[in-house]
Nucleic acid binder design. Sequence first.
DNA 1: CGTGAACTTGAGTCTCCTCAAGAACTGTGG
DNA 2: CCACAGTTCTTGAGGAGACTCAAGTTCACG
Lengths: 244, 244
Amino acid sequence: MNAVAATVESESRPSAFATYPAALETLPALEIEVLRQHTTVTRRKLTPGQYLYHAGQAFQALYLVHAGFLKSRVVSADGREQITGFHLRGELLAVDAIGTATHGCDVIALDYTEVWELPYPPVLHACMRIPELQARLTAALAGEIRRDRNWMLALGTLDAEQRVALFLLDLAQRYQALGFSPSHFVLRTTRAEMGSFLALKHETVTRALSHLHAQGYIEVERREVRIKDAAALARLAGGSTRIQ
Amino acid sequence: MNAVAATVESESRPSAFATYPAALETLPALEIEVLRQHTTVTRRKLTPGQYLYHAGQAFQALYLVHAGFLKSRVVSADGREQITGFHLRGELLAVDAIGTATHGCDVIALDYTEVWELPYPPVLHACMRIPELQARLTAALAGEIRRDRNWMLALGTLDAEQRVALFLLDLAQRYQALGFSPSHFVLRTTRAEMGSFLALKHETVTRALSHLHAQGYIEVERREVRIKDAAALARLAGGSTRIQ
DNA sequence: CGTGAACTTGAGTCTCCTCAAGAACTGTGG
DNA sequence: CCACAGTTCTTGAGGAGACTCAAGTTCACG
């Protein structure tokens, strides 16, 4: 039920990572061991609301999510902001800053979270020696691009209710890949955060959730969601359950 | 005036590539030479409307745009489609397929175009030996992610006219980076294609262009665009002239 | 020169946004 | 442990921006 607790429990289940693209597929336990030999991997714990890093801050490390839930957010010069993603165990953060001196977005914990800090230049050096690692990193980056593009497709072609349905299915699928229930979970986001990601206002998200409930596709009470008819949601959202 | 002609002329101006992120900054002439030693770089010419590759087709090469103009497009299972980018000289295509067996999107020429085909496994091997090349590739991927996220921000927070203004500024900036006029160019896209990219209908794009014209910010006649007041456009689009 | 695609413009509609108010929950301090 | 303040969520009513449909024009190409 509680994502954090559950995530910690599942530490001994690396097989689950094979399913979701951004997941530890990227960096299985084996490679983490190799990394350790080249650099100091430090654990960092965050409480809800705490920043992992700010936009503009010097880029010095990648972060592997070990447990918890985070959001990343871009903010424009004139103050417009948009959430560009939510992150679960197994995802690699800050990869988008590679090749730049500073981070281009904020990353903020939305739950009690633990990340592994992988100092960047050392990681780069490790990659040079270990082609495997290099390939994984590149593949992770490419996967990120594909996922972003698929969300662009969704935002450009789906209406509010379809976007919310797709968002729920995406979350469900990711939880499932991590060994949690895909049909019953607790949202870590406010309606406004979901809305920001989906390019909708929080009232619209609420209305979409209410309507999905009214249709019998889901049950929703505040943050707690039960998916009653995933097939119907998938049909609604355009057939493709799968993101990526 | 004609982008193709002009591009061909500018072949001897690698310095211009330093400005735009996805540009040859990625793979300067020097590294191309190195690549040649590891693999066969073949030139491929495309006419308007011709596919560089289809979604689903086997991924076997990266492509460096040498001249011309292309679009990439994602299509969902149920037929919804969205243009995810337009590509100019210096950009590296198909990087998003790295780590997968097949291409995930279509890439189609919108003008007479020449690309250099870089067979993929060989490129990978070259990267192993030449850290420089590796770093460039990773940086190019990271830059792609940042650009996509910035467009997500734009699509999520700007209205139709602002999006169109930003699109024009982006094009202007990219043309300038390649040594062309940033204030006078010919669009290679239809209104519908622009609209697909910007998540707008073609009529809405037309109306936005007409209104920008009426305000005196641009002159537009079919595909030919003159930017009369870039500062006003930038103000309109939220202050940031710069994408990325 | 004719045909089809691309573009423009208008009128009407609909989706989502804005504004507003109230309810439910969270957590903080007395 | 309870009261209160602030946030989050929900729902309604009204309005705005973008879409749909439609018609006419311009242009490119065969």
